[in-house]
Computed example of a mutant assay.
Amino acid sequence: MTPSSPIRVMSPEEIAVNAGARVAPVKVPEPGLFAERALRLRQLADGHAMRDYLLFVAELAQRQHELLKQPRALKLPDEVLINGAMVGGLPPVEAQGHPRDAVWREELRALLTAMSAAAIPEAAKALVARLAQADEVWLEQQAGALLAGGGPGLDPAAAPLIAAALQVHWTRLVTGLQERYERSDQGENVAPFGMIDDPTVCPCCGSRPVASITRVAAEQSGQRFLACSLCGAQWHYVRIKCTHCQGTKGISFQTLVDDEGRKSEAVAAECCETCGHYLKQVHMEKDLQVEPLADDLATLTLDLLVGELGLVRQGFNPMLILGEAEASHDDAPPGRAGTGAAPPGGR
């Protein structure tokens, strides 16, 4: 009897990578996406330096949830376009390429009406009233700048409200396509979503992630998903891998430390020395209530600290745009560093 070969034990990361092939690579947004975000923001606001603004965004998220429950007619892309996107390795409702239906402005008007009756600061009420009078050309220009991930001409104060309407609209598009596929007889329709050629952007709408989340549920335990800043979809992405250059060398993590020297383990910034970019990670194993956009928004201090190291933010959070980053790389995306208007709910 010959001696058995030595058994090689896989590292936790290798286990996660291999498990990733067995879980659904794309998670379409859940119906309670905005309600969970609102709940988390209210939780994070307690005693926070940005309390007023977090509560403002929480109110906005709650109104998004209520609006999403109301039916609205949408023109969905046909199967030929979906099939073409799949063959080309592209997202089927790409934020900058998909024709923007004017119905998104109906979502905005409904949100503005709801927010005008909400208990929000006077400065926010004034902004809501100003946006209600804005012309369509300006609104479309603002929408285009936001869908491009920020850029020249974007009004930082108005951005959260406009982005909220766009988020509802694109969430409807993604969930509508998924529902159409699930209703089809014997699955004859083309499956709408799958991994695309560029794993660093949303496979549904092509937007940048706001952050990544490490999940704990069943077969997804230990799996890392990137969370879309626009439609709310999540897609699998290997851990300890840069979400900008896709490299695995020179990866480190930065966290906030309180006055007593304790690290904030629920949120960390994954930093890449190779390309000089970073993206935040939120960990459900440390806090089951984490929500990517909410926890990203509540850890602005971490952005400022990592920015002092010369790193450029890879994620995009349309709920807080303070200006364009002074990027050290020609292809660096707009970030949150720099000077800009104060958010409508206060800072």
Rank of each mutant, 00 (worst) to 15 (best):
L90R: 11
E30H: 13
V190R: 07
H98E: 07
E285Y: 06
P12H: 04
N189V: 02
H98L: 06
A61W: 11
E136C: 03
I251L: 13
S264Y: 03
P29V: 10
L177K: 01
K75E: 12
P318E: 09
F225V: 12
T248I: 06
Q43S: 13
C202R: 01
A58V: 07
R105P: 04
K27R: 15
A266R: 05
P121L: 09
V28H: 14
L300V: 05
V238D: 06
T301Q: 11
E107Y: 02
G187M: 12
A35F: 11
A218Y: 06
P92I: 07
A143Q: 02
F253H: 15
A124R: 14
G176C: 07
V9C: 00
Q254L: 06
D330K: 15
R51G: 11
T175S: 09
L74I: 08
Q281K: 12
A227Y: 07
W104G: 03
L54N: 04
Q64L: 12
G315T: 09
L256Q: 08
T171V: 13
E179Y: 04
A163R: 02
G176K: 00
D135M: 05
K249S: 01
P343T: 09
L322V: 08
G150T: 04
H329R: 15
G88C: 02
S207M: 13
D259N: 05
K75H: 08
V290S: 02
A164C: 15
A227F: 08
A327S: 15
L112G: 02
Q70H: 05
H283S: 06
